[in-house]
């Protein structure tokens, strides 16, 4: 049986045999996609499966818990548009009520407005500056 060290020593990023001409086809590793297809409860996040995303910038996050024998479900939906265009990124709401998103993974927000302001500031490649001078 190979040790972890032997396994790592065999990693050949430099050969990049899977890469070919582009990285675009590497949506997720084949073995990960196979797990998703096998009904193991995983899916490529690209489709936002289970998060309730739609094409109009709407995103629904569902929180469930139990309290004193009662079943609780809370659905929170955000509809966000920036310059009239729907925001299509992933959003979720933590148990403490804070907004979490993939685009700004090292921060959570009590205010969706603060989130969008930071989003625009952090991604100038996506959101060109429109400040009037």
């Amino acid at each position: 049986m190979q040790s972890g060290k032997e396994k790592v020593a065999g990693c050949k990023v430099e050969h990049a045999e899977e890469v070919g001409d582009d990285l675009r086809h590497l949506d997720q590793p084949d073995w990960v996609k196979e797990l998703a297809r096998g009904g193991h409860g995983h899916d490529d996040h690209a489709g936002h499966g289970g998060h309730g995303g739609d094409h109009d910038g709407g995103f629904t996050s569902t929180r469930t818990t139990h309290h004193d024998g009662h079943e609780i479900e809370i659905k929170t939906t955000y509809h966000i548009k920036i310059d009239g265009k729907p925001y299509r990124g992933h959003l979720s709401v933590n148990d403490d009520g804070h907004l979490h998103c993939h685009a700004i993974p090292y921060e959570t927000y009590g205010s969706a407005l603060d989130f969008v302001r930071n989003l625009i500031d952090i991604y100038p490649d996506t959101f060109a500056t429109k400040t009037q001078g």
Partner: peptide, 24 residues
């Protein structure tokens, strides 16, 4: 080769385990 690590990190971070978990 350097860029590959940014790509890998991005892809792993965007794969929810499992999908739909509200905790990210």
């Amino acid at each position: 080769t350097y860029d590959y690590f940014a790509f890998w990190h991005h892809r792993a971070m965007n794969f929810m385990t499992p999908p739909g978990n509200s905790a990210g």
